[in-house]
Simulated scan of single mutants.
Amino acid sequence: MPSPQSAIQDMAEPKVKLTDIAYEQIEEAIITLRIPPGSVISELTLSEMLNIGRTPIREAIQRLAREHLLLVLPQRGLLVPEIDLRKQLKLLETRREVERLICKSAARRALPEERERFTRLHDEFIHAAATDDDVAFLRADREFNELSLVAARNEFAEGAMRLMHGLSRRFWYFHYKQAADVPEMARLHAAVAGAIAKGDVNAAGETLDQLLDNIETFTKATLMSDM
């Protein structure tokens, strides 16, 4: 007969899993613009769209609100914020310092099984580059971001980075057709993943800087084209 503690864990696991699924699906819908900026949606609409119960949806909404991908409007629903170009440049300034720390820490501290996942992600990025597949790239990017946060083992840097990942990915997807190069972006991500997989701390920092240089150039080009 299972212990009371294990029974409680068994009851909790499906709820945690559904919350993660709800979060990932709503985040992807926002980032890939299936739910476009400026949209007002409801908790019920999301629950019906994903066929997931209201409690996991509500928990996913709370997480997305913390990451500034949703704004909760009391009595009115959920607003997907518009994209602000100038705020994006401020975000990049902060992201560079935090993400460099995360990538170098991940290269230093990743466990063997995590390094294997970084190697697999390196290959997925290379495949996305070869096929020019933007959705495959975004999915690999999300997994890379999550794995980097875990492997870095720095809860303070993780907290700061989680506030920036979703906004950065949505901005890129919204504007990439006018100024970005998906294969090049995927190759730059592959270089960072490969450096972390090999435990090369210096290369992890250097390749991350090259990636963010590319993103900053893309962001400034987007800003100039919209002025």
Rank of each mutant, 00 (worst) to 15 (best):
V16F: 07
V16C: 03
V16Q: 13
L18R: 15
D20I: 06
D20F: 10
I21M: 14
A22R: 02
A22G: 03
Q25H: 03
I26Y: 06
E28I: 06
A29H: 03
A29V: 07
A29N: 01
A29P: 02
I30S: 00
I31M: 05
T32A: 00
T32E: 08
L33S: 08
L33Y: 10
R34L: 05
R34G: 02
R34V: 04
P36I: 06
P36M: 02
P37G: 04
P37Q: 13
G38D: 07
G38T: 14
S39M: 01
I41T: 04
S42W: 05
E43L: 12
L44R: 09
L44P: 00
L44C: 01
T45E: 12
L46S: 05
S47V: 06
E48C: 02
E48S: 09
E48A: 02
M49Y: 09
M49P: 00
M49N: 13
N51H: 09
N51F: 03
I52T: 13
I52M: 08
G53Q: 08
R54D: 08
R54E: 10
T55Q: 11
P56Q: 05
P56I: 00
R58T: 15
E59R: 04
A60H: 05
I61N: 01
I61H: 05
R63K: 15
A65P: 01
R66G: 02
R66P: 00
E67T: 06
E67K: 03
E67R: 01
L69W: 07
L69F: 07
L69R: 02
L69T: 10
L69C: 10
L70V: 12
L71R: 15
L71C: 09
V72N: 06
V72P: 05
V72K: 15
L73T: 11
P74A: 15
Q75H: 15
Q75K: 07
R76T: 09
G77S: 12
L79D: 06
V80K: 11
V80P: 03
V80Y: 11
P81M: 15
I83K: 11
I83S: 11
Q88R: 15
L89Q: 13
K90L: 14
K90N: 13
L91I: 14
L91Q: 11
L91N: 04
L92T: 12
E93G: 04
E93P: 00
T94L: 04
T94N: 03
R95K: 12
R95M: 10
R95S: 08
R96W: 09
R96K: 14
R96T: 08
E97T: 10
E97A: 12
V98K: 09
V98H: 13
E99L: 10
L101T: 14
L101F: 09
I102M: 04
K104R: 10
K104L: 04
S105K: 14
A106G: 07
A106C: 04
A106D: 07
A107F: 08
A107I: 02
R108C: 06
R108H: 14
R109F: 03
R109H: 14
L111G: 05
L111E: 14
L111D: 11
E113A: 02
E114C: 02
E114D: 06
E114M: 01
R115T: 03
R115E: 11
E116H: 00
R117D: 04
R120G: 08
R120N: 03
H122P: 00
D123G: 02
D123Y: 01
D123N: 09
E124Y: 11
E124H: 11
F125M: 05
F125W: 08
F125C: 04
H127P: 00
